[in-house]
Computed example of a mutant assay.
Amino acid sequence: MSRLPKLHVAVLMGGWASERPVSLMSGEGVAKALEERGHRVTRIDMDREVALRLHESKPDVVFNALHGVPGEDGTVQGMMDLIGVPYTHSGLATSVIAIDKELTKHALVPHGIPMPGGRIVRSEELYDGDPLARPYVLKPVNEGSSVGVAIVTAEGNYGNPISRDAKGPWQQFESLMCEPYIRGRELTAAVLGDRALMVTELVPKSGFYDFDAKYTDGMTEHVCPAQIPAEITRLCLEYALQAHRLLGCRGCSRSDFRWDDERGEDGLFLLETNTQPGMTPLSLVPEQARHCGIEYGELVEIIIEDALHHFGKLPATAEAG
């Protein structure tokens, strides 16, 4: 049974970020689920005319299924605020902060959430020498889905120092976040509304949990719920919910962790909080929701209901969440 009266929902997807294929999969999944539940759906593959297309379609609400820049960094959120259309997930200020790994550290670490140390380095610096002792991690400051992540090891897999000819994010981005590499296990916890769902461990079949491992069927095992000590589960859920609240996230978010199991509680670090987690068949938020008894279609409606409530547009006939 639908949680909501019949709505006209514009599903915003695609765009031109590196995560475009994932966004298209997320958006199509959302659109089909809404149609199955009786809603009218307008699919919008974002282009430079997106504001006009939203104005012309006049939806009741926009489901923002974009990933990366400019759909997840506050740009599209500001545009929709100007148009005056309700939309799902986090707003402008939250999006600006959460997609920026340095700003996220400034927002969360002072409140006791452990995150890896690190600093921003210019890519040019890397050709002269290592900014940190190896192994360390280099990643774009404002990309998601492990796009452009490189692990620089003591074996000198990119040269020592890094070679200008070595393929890596230093060839694509002027500056990068440099962090010490944390050995151990990959964990993630989703928050829906004001509820932390559960913890999943991600076990790539080879390498690390990069873009391909996330979105290629069979390349990563999802252990859900994670087979980890109860105290680590508790801390992941606590930190994920705290990050969601401190950053001002709406709808749903997903926080990713590394856990050095040789160090116990002291080995747990939050890496980032995603304000617009994927909604593909392999995505983690739908999987965790399903384990909590929330099927995909209901999950989509819960996220829309949260948006309508935030913007004061929740129909009086909507069921209580």
Rank of each mutant, 00 (worst) to 15 (best):
M1P: 10
R3Y: 07
L4I: 07
L4W: 07
P5T: 08
L7M: 05
H8L: 06
S18G: 13
E19A: 08
V22S: 05
S23L: 06
S26C: 09
G27M: 04
E28A: 01
A31I: 09
A31Q: 06
K32T: 02
K32R: 07
A33W: 07
R37D: 00
G38C: 05
D45R: 02
D47G: 01
R48Y: 03
V50A: 03
V50L: 04
A51Q: 08
L52Y: 00
H55P: 00
E56D: 02
K58Q: 00
P59M: 00
P59S: 03
P59V: 00
V61I: 02
V62W: 02
F63G: 01
F63A: 01
L66W: 01
P70Y: 10
T75R: 09
G78V: 03
D81K: 03
I83E: 01
G84W: 06
V85N: 02
T88P: 07
S90Y: 00
A93D: 07
V96A: 10
V96P: 01
I97H: 08
D100E: 12
G112T: 07
G112M: 11
I113S: 14
P116I: 14
G117V: 14
G117E: 15
I120Q: 15
R122H: 14
R122L: 13
S123V: 10
L126K: 15
P131D: 07
L132Y: 11
A133K: 15
R134P: 05
P135W: 05
P135E: 07
Y136F: 14
V137P: 07
V141Y: 04
G144R: 01
V147F: 00
G148C: 04
I151L: 00
T153N: 07
A154D: 12
N157P: 00
Y158F: 10
I162F: 12
K167E: 12
P169D: 06
P169T: 02
Q171R: 15
Q172E: 14
F173Q: 15
C178N: 15
I182T: 12
R183P: 13
E186V: 07
L187A: 05
A189E: 05
A190Y: 03
V191W: 03
V191M: 02
E201N: 11
L202F: 01
K205Y: 04
G207L: 02
F208T: 04
D210E: 10
F211I: 12
K214R: 06
K214Q: 04
Y215Q: 06
Y215S: 08
T220P: 00
E221P: 05
E221H: 08
C224W: 12
A226L: 04
E231W: 10
E231H: 10
I232L: 11
L235K: 04
L235Y: 10
L235I: 03
L237I: 09
A240N: 08
A243G: 01
A243V: 10
L246Y: 09
R258Q: 13
E262Y: 07
L270I: 12
L271G: 12
E272C: 10
Q276M: 12
G278A: 11
G278Q: 09
T280S: 09
G293E: 08
G297S: 13
D306I: 09
L308G: 09
F311C: 05
G312M: 02
T317N: 11
A318H: 05
